[in-house]
């Protein structure tokens, strides 16, 4: 471990090693410094241990405990608030459903009453229309019967005129009627 004597080389200007007082020994193994180092170490480490044990560590532990308590309290609070919010949400949902149900019922009722009304109106209208149709049919029937009656008159007049032109004499009404009846039955 012994170091050679220092500052002996002539060109020693590069790394300046100041004259050393350790006289070539290896400082960590120089036992004459041990007692002093131990004393200062004991004082310094004793002071450090005292400060850590009595002041620093209890304080840091306290801070950490406070924070943990605070956090768990805040978490509980948050859980409570979440539950409240969920309950409020459920109530809102329920009232929304109720309102929707009610609205649906009102709509259904309105629809029913409206359709009843329109049904009644339609029936009334249909009755009126049917009555009118029957009326019209009766008129048509009477008109056509009347028309058919007129046909016989026209036919007998036409027949009399034809016979008069062909024979030069006017046929009597009785034989005309007979001939018309015969023609009518032949049909």
């Amino acid at each position: 471990m012994a170091q050679p004597a220092q500052n002996t080389a002539p060109n020693d200007a590069i790394v300046q090693v100041p004259p050393s007082e350790h006289g070539g020994g290896f400082p960590p193994f120089e036992s004459h410094t041990f007692l002093a180092q131990l004393i200062w170490l004991a004082l310094a480490f004793g002071l450090l241990y005292y400060l850590m044990d009595k002041v620093a560590l209890p304080r840091i532990q306290g801070i950490l405990n406070d924070r943990a308590n605070r956090l768990s309290k805040d978490l509980d609070e948050a859980h409570r608030m979440k539950a409240e919010a969920e309950a409020a949400g459920a109530a809102y949902e329920k009232s929304l459903n109720d309102a929707q149900g009610k609205a649906r019922a009102i709509a259904q009722e309105t629809r029913n009453s409206l359709s009843q009304e329109t049904d009644a109106k339609r029936k009334a209208l249909e009755g009126e229309l049917n009555a009118r149709i029957a009326d019209s049919e009766a008129t048509i029937r009477s008109r056509s019967a009347e028309a058919m009656g007129n046909v016989r008159g026209i036919a007998s007049e036409t027949a009399a005129a034809i016979v008069e032109r062909l024979t030069g004499q006017t046929p009597d009404q009785a034989s005309l009627d007979r001939a018309l009846d015969k023609a009518a039955t032949a049909h």
């Binding site: 410094t33 041990f34 002093a36 480490f45 002071l47 400060l51 850590m52 840091i60 306290g62 406070d66």
Partner: peptide
């Protein structure tokens, strides 16, 4: 044995001071 306050002792107490600064002064506000 010479009982001298060496630079080694100074560093030891400096270390104690730094640690105290970090763990005591810095946590003073809690």
């Amino acid at each position: 044995q010479e009982i001298a306050f060496t630079q080694s002792a100074l560093y030891m107490f400096a270390a104690v001071g730094i640690i105290a600064l970090l763990t005591i002064v810095a946590t003073a506000n809690r």
